[in-house]
Amino acid sequence: MLELRLVQGSLLKKVLEAIKELVTDANFDCSATGFSLQAMDSSHVALVALLLRSEGFEHYRCDRNLSMGMNLNNVSKMLRCAGNDDIITLKADDGSDTVTFMFESPNQDKIADFEMKLMDIDSEHLGIPEAEYHAIVKMPSAEFARICKDLSSIGDTVVISVTKEGVKFSTRGDIGNANIVCRQNTTVDKPEEATIIEMQEPVSLTFALRYMNSFTKATPLSNTVTISLSSELPVVVEYKVADMGYIRFYLAPKIED
């Protein structure tokens, strides 16, 4: 028996909008720790890891570990029927091949049940070790989204370079090239507007902008984004999900042939 009640149902709606472009089908795993997902995109260069900790739910009942295969486009269709202020509850019985999404309006005057068929999905779980990153950049998520969008009108790839001067996003294409430098800036009115650069050593890596733009679909979840870089490792782009967890996107760098 599984029953997860999330008062801030809009978080789940935003999570789905953040990942459905990247991943078509995925297994949602429920355990005592929380509600999680790890899935790769079809070309196996990007991976999304979601964790919503059990403490973040108003009610969290998970009698035994359960893996539920879902088509994310279908989940998104279901969740779009929930109001932004609705409380969302996920329910599944042991051995059932369906999951039920229950939507309650804040004043309890409307209650809806949407039952969705589950599917069997073979998924490869990657063992991602904890890594020491050469540079960690924390910046406003809207600013990062703007940079990725702007650069993708010029080129297909972005070089992200971190030095003592700041973090530089560069691209080049047929019509020309572009460089955007963001300097560390902690003298702002609100902490979420700060750009903070923790650098152990300079790092410069190249990534496909198409994936970066896809990651920025998570922007509505958090005012800030954290970008962790190490040479010869995938970049980690992390958005916090309120105080209950995170979405992390991993993207393999482009390598010179």
Partner: peptide, 14 residues
Amino acid sequence: GSSQAQLYTFYQAL
């Protein structure tokens, strides 16, 4: 030119 590495190159599947 450059090519896109796969995540398998970096992380082993469990």
